[in-house]
Amino acid sequence: MTSCENDLFVLSLLSMTRLTKADVVHVAKLAKLNLSDSEINKFLPQLSSIIDFIGQLNEVDVKNVEPTAQVTGLENVYRVDGLNSSNYLTQDEAISGTDKTYNGYFKVPAILEGRTDK
């Protein structure tokens, strides 16, 4: 951990149980959710009380405990690296979930706006 990361970590521990409106707005942005003001005001106390509650894990000693990654003890599951027509959708099937298609492709909202070369 660099000292900067370290500071950030300490800071996050200090602020762990104090969720602010800015935190909610930030998290919503990370999760690509557009929340209204009334939603933010509703979620803030609800999320705060849940985060306070899960903070109880602070009291558990986990020294020398490995985190769980998988519960049934599976290791390296392989499959044949080959094509099997029942494993994929046809192009028509793949685009059947939307009306917004063009020549067999998905139409997506423009990322770049306005051309500057004309």
Binding site: L8, S12, V27, L33, L47, V65, E66, P67, A69
Partner: peptide, 23 residues
């Protein structure tokens, strides 16, 4: 989604997610 994004976000992953997987 908000709760999950929060516990996985930078600075909180170790304190929440990793800790939870150890408990």
């Amino acid at each position: 989604i908000m709760l999950g994004t929060y516990v996985l976000s930078a600075g909180y992953y170790d304190a929440y997610y990793l800790k939870a997987q150890k408990v």
